[in-house]
Amino acid sequence: MSFGEAPAQITAISAGTSEPSTTRMLADRAAQAVVTRLRDSGRNTTVRVIELAPIAAEVARTLVSGLPTAAVQEAIGHLAAADAVIVSTPVYKAGLSGLFKSFIDVLDNDLLIAKPVLLAATAGSARHAMVADDHLRPLFAFLRALPAPTSLFAAPEDWGAADLSKRVDRAAGELVALIASGVSRDIADGGWSGYQHTFGGNATRAQRTAADIDLDSDLMRLARGET
């Protein structure tokens, strides 16, 4: 175990609603595989799981009022602090869960920039197998996150098949490789000012004090009457 390195923080989001939920189970399997690999490589790891079902009404209220409730704010904080994120959503009506999308909709656009993300979806039929790649991948592309090349999908029959474990393991390996490479930090540190931001946002690199503000931009010069 290496000393001096902060434990890796993994945040998993599950939009499953039943108890037990296969969506949550898939998130857990992925998280377990990621933690095992990180620990094997000598990196201490902590995992937080955000269940969206218990805060569903608060997510909706936040979306309508634009004002994050305490529970939603806490969840946003866990995402901001994460070194990597695992997202897991059920497929409803041939698409990703509305609850999941509503939660994503309340995030700052810059919250997940260059963050490694493992994409996962569950469905009642294998005919929805492309939802993770067709729906989740573009969504996280918009957020300029770094989805792992392999996404996870589980229909009922997959829970009895050894292949699911292999895919989980492969996806976890990819996510860990992204974490270990430091590529996230390189991208975000290297080009942070090139992305659009909101002052006082939730991203860990968000501008929060006068010291963070670039006073030399064109707009700042215009503010001072310079042309």
């Binding site: 909101t198 002052f199 501008q207 006073l215 931009s217 707009l219 700042m220 215009l222 503010a223 001072r224």
Partner: peptide, 11 residues
């Protein structure tokens, strides 16, 4: 939400 406006007010 706009630091530029605060800057203008201050200037």
């Amino acid at each position: 939400r706009t630091p530029e406006i605060a800057e203008q007010a201050a200037f």
